[in-house]
Design a protein around this nucleic acid. Structure first.
Lengths: 192, 192
DNA sequence: GTCTATATAGAGATAGAC
DNA sequence: GTCTATCTCTATATAGAC
């Protein structure tokens, strides 16, 4: 098997395990079993767990923003764009076997057990989401489809925190509907 | 030292460690060092980690709702009450040495590594918060100080998810202001 | 109720053969 | 690039003395 294939499988498996269980509950042994490779081989690709986490975020962040930007650059209304943006989060809950949260949300919860360079990567992910949400809300206001009081930047922060929070909460409830209800309520608040 | 004193110290220490680091990063060794007692002595009080977590939630939930209910039962306006409710969450970020999140939010993130009885306790905490927020919002609407479209129950869910999400996010940013900005934006959205 | 001592399992990580 | 073997450390947990 080619290196890149194994490397990819390791990254995919690690990401799924972290999104489900958390950083500190995920182990090289878990990955080893799932990928069908020995622990030592994982260390060949990612000498330390920190290396693995860094690589995970280095592909997750741009990959997530490729999806977000393709939504933003589409020719749809701001409302549809916001719906699709929220859908990216909902998908981690309900796609496939489900029960996952945002990778950065989970790592964010355990941030105090990690290095400062990882903290920077998570911070960056959060900030970039706020920037894009601000852009989206501004477009909606300009179009006349969104209307709300307060600063647009503050509203962007509020929406992002609500999405990250809902992933955690809806998953505990084992109820994707809980997530959908909150997203619908969000639209009640922003719709002109 | 009396049993109850040691037991209390263990619970207090475990709670602080979990709110900072998470369930799976907290160990009996950590508690042992902080309390000044041997690991085996902790097992006398809490045979298993599961026992410790259950006891933690058994005192956290009623203790939190005593605070919430004293706010709800006060004679203040719904707006002040909601501010004080949000303040309970903000306090975990900025009181004392700070950098903690909601105990149930943290355990909720790691819920897939825990027993179903713990999941039930977390679910209960979430639901009871939604119930109280619904009551608070209803009072505000009746008073004429709150006004928003959509269902009151959905709004309560939205507010709770935003608060749990903000605890995580503001802590990663190392910035309590981020939390405050979102809470102010929330008031922009609900104020009549 | 707290201690020492220990059991058992799992973690992350490395050396060196193939 | 993957393996076996092993190291070191830490985890949860128990037995039994004091």
């Amino acid at each position: 098997m080619k290196t890149t294939d194994t490397r990819l499988k390791i990254l995919d498996t690690a990401q799924e395990l972290i999104q489900k269980l958390g950083v500190n509950a995920m182990s090289y042994a878990d990955i080893s079993t799932a990928v069908g490779i020995r622990k030592a081989s994982i260390h060949y690709h990612f000498p330390s767990k920190e290396d693995l986490l860094v690589s995970l975020l280095e592909r997750y962040t741009p990959s997530f923003f490729r999806l977000v930007d393709s939504i933003l650059e589409s020719s749809e209304s701001a409302e549809i764009k916001l719906r699709r943006y929220c859908g990216l989060f909902e998908a981690t809950l309900s796609s496939g076997e489900q029960d996952k949260v945002c990778l950065c949300g989970m790592i964010g919860a355990e941030v105090k057990t990690l290095s400062s360079s990882l903290t920077k990567q998570i911070t960056h992910f959060f900030q970039e989401n706020e920037i894009r949400l601000t852009k989206l809300l501004t477009q909606g206001k300009d179009e006349g489809v969104f209307s709300f009081s307060g600063e647009t930047e503050a509203m962007a922060k509020l929406i992002f925190s609500l999405l990250e929070g809902e992933l955690l909460i809806a998953r505990v409830h084992g109820d994707v509907t809980h997530f959908k209800v909150v997203v619908e309520q969000l639209f009640q608040l922003v719709k002109a």
